[in-house]
Amino acid sequence: IRCIGVSNRDFVEGMSGGTWVDVVLEHGGCVTVMAQDKPTVDIELVTTTVSNMAEVRSYCYEASISDMASDSRCPTQGEAYLDKQSDTQYVCKRTLVDRGWGNGCGLFGKGSLVTCAKFTCSKKMTGKSIQPENLEYRIMLSVHGSQHSGMIVNDTGYETDENRAKVEVTPNSPRAEATLGGFGSLGLDCEPRTGLDFSDLYYLTMNNKHWLVHKEWFHDIPLPWHAGADTGTPHWNNKEALVEFKDAHAKRQTVVVLGSQEGAVHTALAGALEAEMDGAKGKLFSGHLKCRLKMDKLRLKGVSYSLCTAAFTFTKVPAETLHGTVTVEVQYAGTDGPCKIPVQMAVDMQTLTPVGRLITANPVITESTENSKMMLELDPPFGDSYIVIGVGDKKITHHWHRSGSTIGKAFEATVRGAKRMAVLGDTAWDFGSVGGVFNSLGKGIHQIFGAAFKSLFGGMSWFSQILIGTLLVWLGLNTKNGSISLTCLALGGVMIFLSTAVSA
């Protein structure tokens, strides 16, 4: 259960009878995928790494000078000259100064003066180019299975845990398959586009800190620079940016070097996208990844198990997540596992009318040892309800109150669905055939309105939902006002479609 501690969480529900669903994975976010007769899966884009970055340009932001020398000439005696002028490691300046009897010249006039100092770069920052084909995306998957609280967001041991898996995709191999043991396998067909235009970005490294910066900004930095990788004795261009020549006297000129420019660069980098280094690879934390999940090989585990009949206890007080759902960790005293956990939410304890829904599909106890633990997640209705676990006299209950409203949740879900469709863009549509167009249209309606429909009408039977949709269509056909007619027709059509397409 990876997503319960992530604030940016998206719930995606598969269409009834569908074998695939489109998701948008982004750094700092987590996606929970639910479908009829399929286990619930949490998917998170953990890291995006980039390798084989080529150094484009380096800037010196802290330097020192040494070996200063000057040469001067009297008027009419030609130009002052130093051998160091031809050495690229030196920074030199030529000027004219007033000369006369007082400073060793027989004539009054302008004399030539040249001053040089050896330039040494102490600290530099480097910009590297990123090729999209060198990106690698690491995705962690977790099935809502027989897990306890100690396994949440624990990325170790996934090789031997059938509840978890790690997959890596690249532009050259965008397809992967996550093996989930008894739950089958989940196929991923990803489109490795981060949403960032790397043709316009460089990877900047300064003092063990890293950013993504725009090329134009990078090339306009007014500091000494050299092109390409460091060859040991780089040729620094624009050395004068960190060196200041003071007022010249008759035979000498003082040279000083400016202080470190790291603070000024940090100020200019305010708002830039931060990154990290992992050995020789860069780690990015921006952008998104679009994936199509193929769920035809994914299956529920323990459908044929019998119900657990022994007593359950709450190991922890049920807690609310950031998303309005409830996490419950229970301990089973029996030894008759594997068995299914009898769990439901009810409005009252007399009729036990089921409300809400299970995020953890078909929760089971897989071990036959005593005191096995299991964590599950529920989506309670707004208002008061009861969490009921167990059967008969051994069942345990917990009162729950959820604040908020169904309308607010439906609106929030619609906005999130619209954002998801905007990110998917043209990849969500198939114009290759008439059937493809209608299929894409259905998927689009489901992406945007599916979660809201589930919130508003999830407790009704599909037949009642179709009746309401048919009534809206009838009202649309018999209303003389054009805008009201079109609105009723659209709402009725969407409702009829979703009542037959969205899983219960």
Rank of each mutant, 00 (worst) to 15 (best):
I1G: 01
C3G: 04
V6Q: 03
S7Q: 15
N8L: 00
R9D: 09
R9H: 06
V12L: 02
V12E: 11
E13S: 01
G17M: 10
G18V: 00
G18E: 07
T19L: 01
V23D: 09
V23G: 01
V23Q: 08
V24D: 07
V24N: 07
C30G: 04
T32K: 04
Q36V: 02
D37T: 04
D37R: 14
T40N: 06
D42P: 00
I43E: 07
L45A: 03
T47C: 00
T48D: 08
T48C: 09
T48E: 06
T48L: 08
T49A: 05
N52T: 01
M53G: 00
Y59T: 03
C60F: 07
E62F: 13
A63K: 10
A63R: 04
A63S: 13
S64P: 02
S66T: 07
S66E: 07
A69V: 15
D71H: 09
R73I: 07
T76W: 10
G78K: 07
A80L: 04
Y81C: 07
L82P: 01
S86A: 14
T88D: 04
T88A: 12
T88I: 14
Q89E: 15
Y90V: 09
V97N: 10
V97P: 03
R99M: 11
G102Y: 06
N103R: 02
K110R: 10
G111F: 06
G111T: 02
S112C: 14
L113T: 02
L113F: 01
T120E: 12
C121S: 04
C121P: 02
C121G: 06
C121T: 03
C121W: 09
S122V: 15
G127N: 04
I130S: 08
Q131F: 09
Q131L: 14
E133F: 09
N134L: 03
L135F: 13
E136Q: 01
Y137W: 10
I139Q: 04
S142I: 01
S142G: 15
V143M: 13
V143Q: 06
H144K: 09
H144N: 10
Q147P: 15
H148K: 04
H148Y: 15
S149Y: 01
M151I: 08
Y158P: 05
Y158V: 04
Y158S: 13
R164Y: 01
R164I: 08
A165M: 05
A165I: 07
A165N: 01
K166P: 13
K166V: 00
K166R: 13
E168S: 14
N172D: 11
P174Y: 09
E177Y: 08
L180W: 11
G181A: 13
G182T: 13
G184M: 12
S185W: 02
G187F: 05
L188A: 04
D189K: 06
C190W: 11
P192I: 03
T194I: 12
T194C: 13
T194G: 00
L196K: 01
D197T: 04
F198R: 00
F198D: 06
M206E: 05
N208D: 05
W211M: 11
E216A: 04
F218K: 09
H219F: 15
P222I: 10
P224F: 09
W225M: 07
G228V: 00
G228H: 10
A229S: 13
A229R: 09
A229T: 13
T231H: 03
T231P: 09
T233W: 06
H235Q: 12
A241L: 15
A241W: 13
V243C: 15
V243E: 07
V243H: 03
E244P: 00
F245N: 07
K246H: 14
K246G: 14
K246I: 06
A248K: 08
H249L: 08
R252C: 05
T254C: 04
V255Y: 00
V256E: 15
S260A: 04
Q261L: 06
Q261E: 09
G263R: 10
H266Q: 15
L269M: 12
L273W: 07
L273H: 10
E274W: 06
M277A: 02
D278Y: 00
G282L: 07
K283P: 00
F285G: 14
H288V: 05
L289Y: 02
K290S: 12
K290F: 05
C291L: 01
L293F: 11
M295Y: 13
L298M: 13
R299M: 09
R299V: 03
S304L: 06
Y305D: 05
S306I: 01
L307E: 12
C308R: 08
T309A: 11
A310Y: 14
A311L: 14
F312Y: 10
F312I: 12
F314D: 01
F314W: 14
T315G: 04
T315K: 01
T315A: 13
V317S: 14
V317F: 15
V317Y: 02
V317R: 00
E320V: 14
G324F: 10
T325F: 10
T325Y: 10
V326Y: 04
T327C: 05
T327D: 04
V328G: 01
E329S: 08
E329Q: 09
E329M: 12
Y332E: 05
Y332W: 06
G334T: 06
G334V: 02
D336M: 13
D336E: 12
G337N: 12
K340H: 08
P342V: 07
M345L: 15
M349P: 15
M349A: 14
M349I: 11
T353M: 12
T353N: 15
T353P: 00
P354G: 13
G356L: 02
A361W: 08
N362W: 08
N362M: 12
N362K: 11
N362T: 08
S368C: 14
N371Y: 02
S372P: 13
S372Y: 03
K373N: 14
M374L: 15
L376R: 00
L376Y: 02
L378H: 09
P380N: 13
P380K: 13
P381K: 04
F382L: 12
G383M: 09
D384I: 13
D384M: 13
S385C: 13
Y386K: 08
V388Y: 02
V388T: 03
V388L: 14
I389Y: 11
I389D: 09
G390K: 07
G390R: 10
V391E: 07
G392K: 14
D393H: 15
K395Q: 06
I396G: 00
H398P: 00
H401I: 11
S403P: 00
I407T: 12
G408T: 07
G408W: 08
F411C: 09
T414D: 06
V415P: 04
R420P: 10
M421A: 03
A422N: 08
G425Y: 09
A428Q: 05
A428C: 02
W429H: 10
D430H: 12
G432D: 07
G432V: 02
S433R: 00
V434G: 08
V437C: 09
G444Q: 11
G444D: 12
I445Y: 10
H446C: 04
G450V: 07
A451D: 11
A452V: 09
L456N: 07
F457A: 12
M460V: 13
S461G: 12
W462M: 07
F463H: 08
S464H: 13
S464G: 08
Q465F: 10
Q465S: 08
I468K: 00
G469D: 11
L471E: 12
L475S: 08
L477F: 14
T479A: 14
K480V: 14
K480T: 15
G482R: 12
S483E: 13
I484G: 11
I484M: 13
L486P: 09
T487C: 14
L491K: 12
I496C: 14
I496E: 05
F497V: 11
A501G: 01
V502A: 14
S503Y: 15
